[in-house]
Write a protein that binds this DNA or RNA. Structure first.
Lengths: 185, 185, 185, 185
DNA sequence: TATGAATGAGAATTCATTCAT
DNA sequence: CATGAATGAATTCTCATTCAT
C-alpha cells in the first residue's frame, strides 16, 4: 500500500475515534476498527493502545490551548490573562472529552503529548508568576493548583448535570473560584 | 438459625470489600469472595451486585454525615454551619473512597442509600436556606450546587496528587471556594 | 414440630409445586421453597429431588386414569372402552403438565409411581387384548404402542399451538389415529 | 486472508457439534470449543449462540427435505407424493437430531433457517392442496397439521424406545396416521 | 424435624492483543 | 503495509445440594 493509503487510514481511524468520544462510547480499538471498516491490526499498527489514540485525539485541543496561553501572555492585564486561560482550559475540556483524562493523567504514552502538557505547564507557571508579580492573586496559589482547579470545576459541572447544563455551570463555578483566588482591590 | 454464621460472613465480606476500596482495587464480587475465602454465591446472596456492596460500604459514612449536618443545624452561626458541613462532606469523601461514587451517582440500588442521600440533600437545603436567610452566602447559590462543589473540590485534590497530599489540598481549595461563596461583611 | 405441621408443610409444597407447573415454570426445589415460604431443607426432606415432587404431583392424575381404565373394562363395547381410555389419557396429559414427563420416562423415582404406571400398563394390556379378541383393532397393535401413541398425539397438538388450541387438536389427531387403528366393519 | 484457517475451524466446530448431537449431549458452545480444541471466542465468532450452531447443523437436512418435497411435487400420484413427503420428513428427523427442535420451534435465529422452514411450509401446502384436489385426503386436514403430525409420529417412536427400534416404529405409526388421513377408495 | 445460609462447580460471554496470510 | 480470524484469560452469574444451628 502506498503512503497515501496509510495516511487516509490514519485519518479515518482518528475521525472514527472522535465520534466514539463525542457519543460517549468507550474507545475500544476493536470497535473503532470495525466501525471504520479497517482491519484491527491496522489500527493497532497506527495506535498501539487506546491511550495512544486518545492522546492523538486530544492533540489539537492541547495545541489550541497552548496558543491561547501564549496569546494571553501577550496581553496587558495579568488577571485577565490568568482568568482567560482558566476559561479556555475549562471550555476546551467541555468541548472535547479527550482532554479530561489527559489533564488528569500523570503520565502520557506519546512523547508529543508529554511535551505539549509540559509546555502548557510552563505557560501556566508564567501566567501565574505574572499574576503574582502584579499582586492580583493570593500568594499561596501554586502552579500545580491551576490544572487541579480547572479539573475540579469541570468535574463539579459534570456531577448530576446533563451535558447541556454544563457550560452554564462551569461558568458559575469558575466565577466562584476566581472570586476566591483574586486579591481584592 | 444460622444467624451467627451469616452475620459473621456478612461482616467479613464487608471488611474485605473495605480493604479492596482502601487499596484502590475495583470491587469485584468474585475477587472479594475469593479473598474472603467465602463461597461466591454467598457473597451474591448478601450483595446481588458490586454496587450493592459499595453502597453498603458507604452507608456508615453517609450516616455520619447526616448526623453532622443535623448537628450543624443546631449551631448558632449559619455560615459556620454551612462551611462546616462542606468540610465534613469533603473529609468524608477523602477518608472513604466508597463515598465519591455515591455522591456522583444519580441513582442508587439500595433503598437505604437513596433515602440517606435524599436526607442529606434535604439537610443541605436547610443549611443553605439558613445561610441565605442570614445573608451570608451569595444569592444565586442553589442546593444542587453544594454537592457538586464538594465533589469538585475532592476531585481537584485528587488530580496529580498522592493520597497524603489530599487533605491539605482539599482544605486550601475549599477555602478558595468558600471565599468565593461568602458574602463579604 | 408436630406431625400435623409436617403434613401441612407437605401439602403446601405440593400446592406450590402445582402452581409452578400450571404456570409453566420449571420445578426448582429452591424456588418452590421460597415461594412456599418454607425452608429449602424442609422441602428436600419431603422431596429429595424435583423428580420426586413431580411424581407426587402426577399421582392423583395417574390414580384417576387407573380408575377410568378399570371402569372402561367394565363396559360392554371393546372399541369404545379402548378409545375412551385413549381420550382419557390424552385429556389428562393436557390437563396436568406433570403427566407428560411421567408417561415419557422409562424409570421412576418413587415406588408408588412405578407401581401406578405398571398398573396402568397392565390395564392397557387388558383393554387392548379385549379389543383384539373382539376383532375391533388391527392385529399388529401391541401394548407398548398405546402409551406411545397417546404421547405422540399430545406432542403433535403441542407443536406450534397455543394452549387454548390443544384440546381441539388432540381430538382431531386422535380421531385420525383411531381411524387408522380400527378394523373397518 | 486467513480464509482457509477460518473455513477449517468453522468446519471443525460444525463437525464437533454434530458429534455432540449424535451422542445426545447438549450443545454447549464452551464444551464444543474445548472438545474441538479451538478458542471459545472463535466459536462465538462463528456461532453467536448455541441455537445458531444448531440451525447450522440442521441446514443440510432441511435442504435435502426441500429437494425431496420438490421432487415429490413432480410425481404423478398426489397421495404417493404426500405420503412420501411425510416419510422423508420423519426419516430426516430420526437421522438428524438437529431437526426435531427446528421443526418444533416457532422462531428461528438464522434468516436462512427461517427461509428454509418457510419454503418447506409452502411446499407442504402445495402437496396438501394437490392431495385435496385429487380427493385423496380427508377434507379437514390443514397445512399446519402436517408438520404437527410428523413431529407427533417421531415423538411417539421416541417414547420408551431405543434408537434402533425407532425407524420400525415410525413406519408403523405413520401407517396408522396415513390410514386415518386417506380417503378410502 | 425445620431452617435458611453456605457452598463451589459450571455456564455464558467479552475483550485486548497476537498471528498467519 | 493491511487484514481479520484466532486466542484464552477474565468476569459475571446461577443452581442443585449440603450443613450448621
Amino acid at each position: 500500500m502506498t503512503r497515501r493509503d496509510a495516511a487516509r487510514n490514519w485519518q479515518h481511524i482518528v475521525d472514527t475515534g472522535r465520534t466514539f468520544l463525542d457519543e460517549g462510547r468507550p474507545l475500544r480499538l476493536n470497535e473503532v476498527a470495525r466501525e471504520a471498516a479497517i482491519g484491527v491490526a491496522t489500527v493497532y499498527r497506527h495506535f498501539p493502545t487506546a491511550e495512544a489514540l486518545l492522546e492523538t485525539l486530544a492533540r489539537p485541543g492541547l495545541e489550541k490551548l497552548v496558543r491561547e496561553a501564549e496569546a494571553a501572555l501577550r496581553g496587558d492585564d495579568a488577571w485577565a490573562a490568568f482568568a482567560g486561560f482558566l476559561v479556555a482550559g475549562i471550555d476546551a475540556q467541555l468541548a472535547d472529552p479527550a482532554l479530561q483524562p489527559i489533564f488528569a493523567a500523570t503520565t502520557h504514552e506519546l512523547p508529543e503529548t508529554a511535551e505539549l502538557v509540559a509546555r502548557l505547564d510552563a505557560l501556566t507557571g508564567e501566567l501565574l508568576a505574572w499574576a503574582h508579580t502584579a499582586g492580583r492573586i493570593r500568594p499561596h496559589v501554586q502552579r500545580a493548583d491551576v490544572v487541579r482547579l480547572m479539573c475540579g470545576v469541570v468535574f463539579a459541572a459534570t456531577v448530576h448535570a446533563a451535558p447541556g447544563e454544563r457550560p452554564g455551570l462551569t461558568r458559575r463555578y469558575l466565577d466562584v473560584v476566581l472570586e476566591g483566588l483574586a486579591v481584592r482591590a
